[in-house]
Design a protein around this nucleic acid. Sequence first.
DNA 1: CAGCAAAGATTACAAGCGTAGTCTTTTACT
DNA 2: AGTAAAAGACTACGCTTGTAATCTTTGCTG
Lengths: 128, 128
Amino acid sequence: MSDQIPAISEAESRVMEALWRKAPQRSEDIVAAVQQANDWHEKTIRTLLGRLLGKGAVSAEKEGRRYLYSPTLRREQWQWQESRSLLDRVFGGRLSLLLAHFSEHEKLGAKDIAELRKLLDAIEKKGR
Amino acid sequence: MSDQIPAISEAESRVMEALWRKAPQRSEDIVAAVQQANDWHEKTIRTLLGRLLGKGAVSAEKEGRRYLYSPTLRREQWQWQESRSLLDRVFGGRLSLLLAHFSEHEKLGAKDIAELRKLLDAIEKKGR
DNA sequence: CAGCAAAGATTACAAGCGTAGTCTTTTACT
DNA sequence: AGTAAAAGACTACGCTTGTAATCTTTGCTG
């Protein structure tokens, strides 16, 4: 049922980041926030905001003559979509391949490893 | 120096998969292989192959009047690029966030978990 | 009250992508 | 030799994306 939101693009996601950090916000503030992190023209940011509205990833409610924007797509959900997509596209859905990959290339600190072990324990326990 | 290969698209990566599985191959065989997995028109696949050539992700050498195609971009490298990209774009580069994410959402089978543990052991040992 | 400035709406435009179709060249047959 | 078929080259076309510029409306300001 949850009407599918079309994929959001890289640039669009930068605008979402601003909204995930704080919402609702007026476009002016969104523009300011996004410009903090990305040196984009104000017009560009407004365009992206508009597209996100069109995609249903953000909603807008009138506040006086302006709008207040809020994210509809939750960050978690987006992260999940992107992760699944990578996993399926690149690693044939096999998580262990992904992890093996990171383990080879990424410096996994002792802390990371400990964290991972804890994760595994928790998963295993939960899984019965 | 390593002249950067432009990002390859989703569809293009399907063609790469065929070449990663076996190379070099004649276009005819690539077409056949890709059609196994994706129901695309022969012309489409040839177009993608051409674009990959243009991007320098595959090379071609004449074999008689035809070409033999081989991947230039290694699969590992591509997987790495995609993974880094996800990690940076979506999780701010923090691997632990990604992992926590998967641990929450992914159903890890007992086999996955065992495999992961083994991985962790190996990593730890290697890391001293 | 007349005109400007800001928020939003609409339009622009090139590059990349998915998905082919058409044109050209070359070889293999009849 | 003439011709069809296959491989490759070139062309097509609508959609998305990045990156804005222009147009419209409307409250605010002098």
